[in-house]
Design a protein around this nucleic acid. Structure first.
Lengths: 330, 330
DNA sequence: TTCGGCAGTCGAAGCGCTTCGACGGCGGGA
DNA sequence: TCCCGCCGTCGAAGCGCTTCGACTGCCGAA
């Protein structure tokens, strides 16, 4: 293994000079710089990560905690992870993969051993047990998703309120006068805050602003059929539906069709769902911008590592992709 | 930060004794052991990863290179990755996530800086440019998938030959007398060796042993329709089909139906494909055992890190899951 | 009784890097 | 002309851990 003293000898300088050339933390004459860099190249020098971490108390590694539970959409997670790794690399950092099931211990371990400098947690829950730990860990962190109480933490996610509003506005623009939002299962709403609630708020506000009648229904995926028929019974003039409930999306479409509504002829549909699902079903949709979330999470984390102040919450603007399920009304 | 000398002082021993208690590399009296472990616990000591790596030249981290190209099935990759992390943890190791596009440089970087002790590469190609690097890196590695020339490397994957055979046998058991394998696109076969070829070999061998007529066709996903009609025209007595071509699976089913064959009444179908696809389509199938592949890859790597000899190639036995697409013949 | 050997412990020497303080030389202001 | 201060470089002191050799008792064999 070639070490910094080898480079120093080869370049005719001291090890500390080599270090300063490489880190740029002190001014070095152009001539010395060049000589050192030449030696680095010809010797193929690579600083030892452990030694560097020990001396500088910076490992240049961040932890990424990925979720395991079944409700989540794997491609979205993967996309975020890849984006995170790619972005981390542009900041000269690497990514350590942790699974949800390591839980609190995992966080304490990687932070406590100084294996990582900072942490990204995906898929935080409303009352996540990891929150107090993250707050007291003494290392920067970024959460993907919003817990009930995010004080002292940095969070990022899609702006679900804007997403709800965008859906309502799109339908209003097309001429719909009565629209519905079919949301998460009742249990999710009962738990209080969260992305489900936000979508609803945005949807209702935008509809009100446009003078469009708006109804909101929760929906258990297994009750898709009854939700659909109930909705159509109570609101026979309904012409537009927003579905924010990934597993229920396909069943709902089936149920609407079974109830005699052609899509999109009789009923326009927008999904708030991963792009591949919407793509496959040909639905106008708002996707989770996974790449952007992953990349931004890392960017925020890097800023925090640099000691900068960052906004406590980052809401990414929704992007509505129009597909065949929301044509203009005749 | 509490360090080993703090523990030593608290326990009334020397730092080296603490180290030996923790590593178990020298015998320590039960009494001292207990005292040290108590101190460790009450002080909440965690060894500094960087210091440990520097002193022991072992980082206890392995790299996992995940593929990016579009052909791959994301949930399978994710499942392997999770299994790898979980298994690595049982061996007291962590996993660093690398993306394919870091390529050769990435491997040289993480190995050269001693950031990782060993490497797992997923989705190796037949003539992967990373192979020579892996061979010369001086660190253990395990490949998931088989390149054309695997000398000096450790590989693991599903046993596609056995999978092909299992499909043929299952159909033979059910009473089929003429069966077909619809495989990868022609280009894949032309490239020579690889999993496509192996499946074919196993399929043909088993069919021959059972006295069943067997035909093999490559298939481009966009030519699914013509492949299906051509197959049925040339072999009107065909009653069983094995599809080993993930993207073409659904189009092929559609094409068979369009050609007037009911599934499974007129035509039994087996897929060699990810479980979720087969599940969704209700097809009897052989899945890629992602969990097992990921876990075993890590186990092999750990054995190599321990200096043990491991088999150059590990072929995981296929498991055929019977669903509704292959009922017994009347 | 003597002594070899082993179990249990310690001290010290690194592992390879960063960083702090110091120092020589040189340019510019007084 | 003198001195201050800055630029560029060096030496040395760690960062926290592992590990090697050495030392001390103590037991059992001779």
């Amino acid at each position: 293994m070639v070490k910094i003293s080898d480079v120093a000898r080869h370049a005719g300088v001291s090890p500390s000079t080599v270090s300063y050339v490489l880190s740029g933390k002190r001014s070095i004459s152009e001539q010395t710089r060049r000589r050192v860099l030449d030696s680095v190249r010809t010797l193929g020098y690579r600083p030892h990560a452990g030694a560097r971490a020990l001396a500088s108390s910076r490992s240049n590694v961040i932890a990424l905690v990925v979720p395991l539970r079944s409700g989540i959409h794997v491609p979205v997670v993967m996309q975020m992870a890849i984006a995170a790794v790619t972005t981390a690399r542009t900041h000269d950092h690497d990514v350590l993969l942790l699974t949800q099931d390591e839980g609190v211990d995992g966080l304490e371990r990687v932070a406590g051993t100084a294996l990582v400098d900072a942490i990204i947690v995906m898929d935080v829950e409303l009352h996540d047990v990891r929150l107090p730990v993250l707050r007291s860990l003494g290392r920067p962190s970024v959460l993907i998703g919003f817990p009930a109480d995010a004080t002292g933490l940095t969070c990022i996610d899609l702006d679900f309120e804007a997403a709800g509003a965008a859906c309502a506005e799109h339908l209003a623009d097309l001429g719909h006068r009565e629209i519905a939002l079919v949301g998460a299962p009742p249990a999710v709403y009962e738990r209080g805050t969260g992305f489900a609630e936000r979508t609803k708020t945005g949807f209702q506000r935008a509809a009100a602003e446009r003078g469009v009648r708006a109804v909101v229904r929760p929906c258990d995926p297994q009750d898709a059929r009854s939700t659909a028929t109930g909705l159509l019974r109570d609101h026979p003039d309904l012409t537009g539906v927003v579905v924010h409930n990934e597993p229920a999306t396909e069943p709902l479409l089936t149920a609407f069709r079974a109830a005699g509504r052609r899509i999109p002829d009789d009923l326009s549909v927008i999904a708030i769902a991963p792009d591949d699902l919407a793509e496959r079903l040909g639905l106008t949709s708002i996707a989770i911008p996974a790449d952007e979330v992953g990349a931004q999470a890392v960017t925020l984390l890097m800023a925090k590592l640099d000691g900068q102040e960052v906004p406590a919450s980052t809401l990414l603007p929704p992007r509505l992709v129009v597909r065949s399920s929301t044509p203009p009304l005749p």
